[in-house]
Design a protein around this nucleic acid. Structure first.
Lengths: 119, 119
DNA sequence: CAGCATCCGCGGAGATACTG
DNA sequence: CAGTATCTCCGCGGATGCTG
């Protein structure tokens, strides 16, 4: 379960960040949104592994956490735009660091698969 | 479920990092281990919200991902020491950034609980 | 197009009790 | 001390189908 913010805070600020950002695809979505606003299906195409339900939920959680702003255009066909708030943009260093570390880990992981690489 | 590394990589390196580090307490454990080696129950005291089973699993996963090294001293009473590997130490910037961001978020969150702060 | 409704399985996380 | 062994809950993430 997602650890409530206040409880995570009792342990450590880093745990707050994990509880808010730890959901699958969340940081990836933020990463793409750092390039500019995106529409729903646009994000879906960028993250093809996530189905619409999951995508919706992650985006809504990001919204209720004040990281993403959701704009609905009253028109047909529907158009919904997602863009980062100031708080969301403040994630840029987080995304950068995680991205770099993840890339390094993956490279190591691939090199290691022949030798060992965990079960 | 934890997203397999190779699959996460297909989407984005940042997702690899999340899948490896996203487990509850993991980054907190790493943060404490950055201060030096720690014994099992020592970590348990530092992260009182985690029970032994969870603690064990997170540490084992960190071990099999090459982030933590586990040393068993053959003696009574048992003594097991956890310390970071080089890869683990490479997480320092990640922890630092996440910690700072989490602290900022928490502060914002607390200020906002009266006004809004999500249900 | 951007979703919501519904159903489901898996496994993460915890509680509790026990052991070498 | 440093874990295992069970049992349980529950909610994330996914699949599928429908709607304004």
């Amino acid at each position: 379960m997602r650890l409530p913010v206040l409880r995570a805070l009792e342990v450590c600020p880093v745990e707050v960040a994990v509880s808010v950002l730890g959901g699958t695809w969340k940081l990836t979505l933020v990463k793409y949104l750092l390039d500019g606003p995106r529409r729903f299906n646009e994000l879906g195409r960028l993250v093809p592994s996530a189905n619409t339900k999951t995508l919706t939920r992650q985006l809504r959680e990001l919204e209720s956490d004040g990281i993403v702003h959701r704009t609905v255009f009253a028109q047909v066909p529907p158009r919904v735009e997602y863009r980062l708030t100031d708080l969301g943009r403040s994630l840029e260093p987080v995304v950068a660091v995680m991205d770099r570390w993840g890339a390094g880990f993956a490279e190591r992981y691939i090199r290691g698969t022949a030798t060992d690489g965990r079960r």
